[in-house]
Amino acid sequence: MTIDTQQALFGFALRLGDTSLVLGHRLSEWCGHAPELEEDIALTNIALDLVGHARLWLSLAGEAEGQGRDEDRLAYRRDVFDYRNHLLVEQPNRDFGHTIVRQFLHDAWSVELYERLATSPDAGIAGIAAKALKEVRYHVQHSAEWVIRLGDGTAISRAKTQDALDRLWPYTGEMFEADAASSALAAAGIAPDPADLRAAWAARVADVAAEATLTRPADGWMHKGGLRGEHSEHLGYLLAEMQFLPRAYPDAVW
């Protein structure tokens, strides 16, 4: 299937916007409940950055689509099957270890992506990426440091963190999966082929896992479906909570 550049931009921005929004939502669930005050502040801050990125991407998606949908229309009035986020980021928080491992696996990907997008010939994409890059560099540093602390901490923390890594690993393949939008933009030289991010991501993950004394899981079967709207059961509840007010009061402006 070939699609035109505007359609591709729409799909691409939606994928990044939804992924940022859903992960930001998950992190915001920690607010007030983190293991220590500094982490409460840090996780809330990262959530804030991610929701900020989501606003930029969703606004860009709305413009590319050209049907008058703004960031809120896209965030609050789409059901699960129209969401295009990676399955990784909708996985529940479970405990701090799962949250941090999920974050690191995502951050290590997003820093590679944004570094490449920052030099995109598309000014809209490059602008968002340049802004986001400054923030995701801090995010990956934060999450990597915690993976190392937890992995190379106590026996309990190591076991919990290894469990999180094993459990979340099968969700990492999707980040490198191409779809019609990414293929069209890659062909036009506007965005990288997602597969091209894998080597740098894998190297960073391997380094951090080694320092954390964790065993990098083998690449076996990988979950897929987020890119075509086939999600885990978790996303429906997340959206029900997030979208409650605009759905309950459809005429209201907030």
Binding site: S28, V51, G52, A54, R55, E241, M242, F244, L245
Partner: peptide
């Protein structure tokens, strides 16, 4: 998690 717009969500965060 239930803020009714992304602008409000960011402000509350």
């Amino acid at each position: 998690t239930r803020a009714p717009s992304l602008r409000r969500k960011v402000a509350l965060l």
